[in-house]
Write a protein that binds this DNA or RNA. Structure first.
Lengths: 343, 343
DNA sequence: TTGAAAGCGCTAACAA
DNA sequence: TTGTTAGCGCTTTCAA
């Protein structure tokens, strides 16, 4: 508290016997200073432990060196992988990242977005599913538009309803592939367990499931869709419900890995063997999926890359029409899926 | 681009026909404005989509509404859980979080710290092990000291060498407990697999192992310590090495869950049964530990709470002597540990 | 190559 | 209760 205040640019300038303008130029490595002076200023700054005030700088220069990142929940591996990718690129470029949770709640998301804008971040990366509720999306969209109009850059990951640049995982294709896989194994009584139907990611993945079903001539009514939170616990709840309501099922198609892990744990506690008694598939391929036992058949999304790509996109100037980068979703067949038992 | 610039406080004030001072007071909910005027100003601000400029505010007011968070790697569940806790509390208090990676590299950590300070965060939460290298710690410490002297607050999670407030998991106790557990099961040929010996967390946990060994009268030379990266892959490498160099081992004591998961996967691929042929224990109790098969015996650390606690501590004024909050480490016995096979 | 000075958008004395 | 005004620490013209 009593402590010496942090040295300011004036202090450095004074110590070096130059004006603040010169000191500023020297430290930011701009033109117009003799190398000798620049050297001296830098040395003095270093020795005094000078650290420039970003607030003053961005207020004066109108520039921003920070990026905003909105995730639903960072403890969810899907988002922590994305965040990791964003942070890697940010680290390389000397940008700081401001992260916040939306908690999958459009109201909170809106508030967080406003906070980021107040903090004058230069770019915003919004990760995670959008909402089917048009009212919710509208207010989010309005905020984002205002931001881009003021010169900000926005890139969305996994949501396509805004006219922003976007990194889009091939959710529909991936879901179609994993559904085909199950059908090819001979399953006819599949149950889908999923997070909130109000999320666009869920809608997209469900579309893929239905496409595969249609291809195989199976009416979609034959495949129950059980909704629960998009978490491990949700997976447990949904699996329990499936076991009770749809006892004839031979496969659980979870719309993310977390739910699949929950399913696996319920099945184990019921002594149902996977895949002999019941096949289970996930979606995302979180790092632990390969290490589960049985290892999880799932759809791989390159999450870290999605984060990296998103920030790289954001750092490039905006184009006339929004860019869309589709990230491939690839089926990873592992041990949790197999042919249905004969019944 | 061409866009209308974001409205500023003057614009609001003008629209409302009041001075900036009044507008400022009205919007920040401070005293000294009639409710009628305050109402009107707020309405106008809302309708114009006004969002205050944090840079200007903190430059003028000398206040900061953001907190810095340093983690080794956010994709690591240990850190993503901590981050989640920090973000929850920050969200409640309307603070924004600036997160950065240190990558377990003291040089990078130092740079990140400086960036946070440049961004004038009010508090810094440093999560993750410190370094045994005194030179590295010294420069970090110097930076942190300067920051606190300038009025900043620092809280460390899991590192105790700085004279800052700290949230400390009971690493030594936890390691002692899990080692005792293995010894009580009858294991005598235990191998420890661990991340870098240069990390204080590793040193602390190793101390716990050695204490338990000493209690049981087992010379520490009997227990090989295999060093590898503190990751799942590191766990694989280390386990492979153990299998080759110390074939008589009956238990793998991993110093974090990630490495334990790697060990599990190697053992499975070698068709060694856990725990019949080999027991495995972890440390941290990351969320997935309970869902592995076999479920992982480990030491639970309340990671989210640690994050929450850390920020709460940071938001309280500094005390004369640094506060230390010890978080309990509790042994969680699950299915990956059992008596050694008779040999 | 250097310096003086005008802001950036806001808060907080101080006056009225 | 309200307004005026002086900065906060920096960047950036414009002159020298």
């Amino acid at each position: 508290m009593t402590g010496a205040a942090a040295p300011r640019l004036v202090d450095i300038a004074q110590s070096a016997g130059v004006s603040v303008a010169t000191a500023s130029r020297a430290l930011s490595g701009r033109q117009g200073v003799s190398t000798a002076v620049a050297e001296r200023v830098k040395e003095i700054a270093e020795s005094l432990g000078y650290i420039g005030n970003v607030h003053a700088r961005s207020l004066a220069g109108g520039t921003s060196s920070s990026v905003g990142l909105v995730v639903h929940e960072v403890a969810d591996p899907y988002f922590s992988e994305i965040a990791s990718g964003v942070m890697r690129v940010a680290g390389q470029r000397g940008l700081s990242v401001q992260m916040c949770h939306s908690g999958r709640d459009p109201q909170i998301e809106l508030r967080q977005l406003r906070t980021l804008i107040a903090n004058r971040v230069g770019v915003i990366v919004v990760a995670g599913s959008g909402y089917l509720d048009p009212e919710a999306e509208r207010s989010i969209h309005r905020e984002l538009t205002r931001f881009t109009q003021a010169g900000g850059r926005v890139v969305a990951i996994g949501r396509h309803q805004h006219a922003t640049d976007a990194v889009l995982p091939a959710n529909t294709d991936g879901a179609q592939a994993v559904t085909r896989h199950l059908l090819a194994l001979g399953h006819r009584r599949v149950a889908v367990i999923t997070g909130s139907l109000g999320l666009t990611t869920v809608a997209d993945r469900l579309t893929g499931v239905h496409r595969a079903l249609a291809e195989a001539g199976i009416p979609r009514e034959d495949v129950p869709v059980i909704e629960a939170p998009f978490t491990r616990d949700g997976g447990r709840t949904a699996t329990l419900e499936m076991l009770g309501e749809h006892p004839g099922s031979t496969a659980v198609l979870a719309l993310n890995d977390d739910m699949a892990i929950g399913a696996l744990s319920v099945l184990r506690s019921r002594s149902l063997r996977v895949p002999e008694d019941m096949s289970v598939t996930g979606f995302d391929d979180v790092p632990v999926a390969a290490d589960l036992s049985p290892s999880l058949t799932t759809v791989r999304l390159p999450m870290q890359q999605m984060g990296e790509k998103a920030l790289e996109l954001a750092l490039r100037p905006a184009t006339k029409r929004p860019r869309r980068v589709v990230m491939p979703a690839t089926l990873v067949e592992r041990d949790s899926s197999g042919p249905p038992r004969r019944s």
